[in-house]
């Protein structure tokens, strides 16, 4: 058993070191933040998610799509059915064809998805100087260091490019963007929204809130996953201990 434990620990150690080292090389590493959903027991802060949604729909949504957000999903950030209906009713979606064969727009329902700001990717690129604003529903999983990166990027703009850096037309200098030259103008300055819960909308508050919201839409199952994982692991630890006891009993009389 002792030998086995040592082997297992050594293997786990080697594996972790190996896996960490094997990640593709990255650009500037963003500073690690403390997020409420990290750790074995981490959960989302509903009020923060709602503030983040407010930032998203007021600021980000004018250029970025959110293809995996349906209004009904907003239940997950603490809205009730009536609130969801009211939020959906603020938007128009295309439906059809009707009996005359025409497409038409109607008020959105909870089962509808959040409407895209542009008709298609080409239209989005045309309206944004040739760069398509990426969809945000998976952004927190689609970049190394997910939420830390989003937070760093949104706060990583610098007014002046460092000496010697030739900025291309229509680009902005960002310390954390891979090429440092990003097409997105600084989106948040502070006081871009008036929070319904009265929180002061400083730029850092807004960035943290919208980052939390983006992490939630990327991993809406996170809370259910961790809660279930806790129960499953506790169960397995008990079962494995029992199996070990049975194994000891059965092997007691065997020299091995």
């Amino acid at each position: 058993m002792r030998k086995f434990a040592l082997t297992a620990i050594a293997a786990a150690f080697a594996l972790t070191a190996f896996a960490n080292n094997s990640k593709a090389s990255e650009g500037v590493v963003p500073p690690a933040m403390d997020w409420s959903w990290q750790g074995l027991f981490g959960t989302y802060d509903r009020a923060q998610l709602q503030r983040g949604f407010q930032v998203f729909k007021t600021v980000c949504a004018s250029c970025h799509s959110m293809r995996y957000l349906a209004f009904r999903n907003l239940e997950g950030i603490g809205f009730n059915d009536d609130q969801i209906k009211a939020i959906a009713a603020e938007y128009e979606v295309q439906d059809g064809p009707n009996d005359d064969g025409e497409m038409f727009t109607r008020t959105a329902k909870p089962s509808d998805h959040f409407p895209h700001p542009f008709a298609n990717d080409k239209a989005a690129a045309a309206a944004n100087g040739g760069a398509t604003p990426p969809d945000l529903s998976l952004m927190a999983k689609a970049r190394p260091h997910g939420p830390d990166y989003i937070h760093a990027l949104l706060t990583g703009y610098e007014e002046e490019a460092p000496a010697g850096v030739e900025m291309a037309e229509g680009k902005y200098y960002n310390h954390y963007f891979a090429s440092h030259q990003i097409s997105m103008p600084p989106p948040l300055y502070g006081d871009d929204v008036e929070y319904t819960d009265g929180t002061e909308a400083t730029i850092d508050q807004e960035v943290q809130d919208v980052t939390a919201f983006l992490n939630w839409i990327a991993e809406p199952e996170l809370e259910a996953r961790k809660a279930m994982g806790m129960k499953v692991l506790l169960f397995l630890i008990v079962l494995t201990a029992m199996l070990y006891a049975v194994k000891r009993k059965i092997w007691a009389k065997i020299e091995h």
């Binding site: 397995l236 079962l239 494995t240 199996l243 070990y244 049975v246 194994k247 059965i250 092997w251």
Partner: peptide
Amino acid sequence: IKDLFGMG
């Protein structure tokens, strides 16, 4: 039983 324990 040894395999089952390992599986756990």
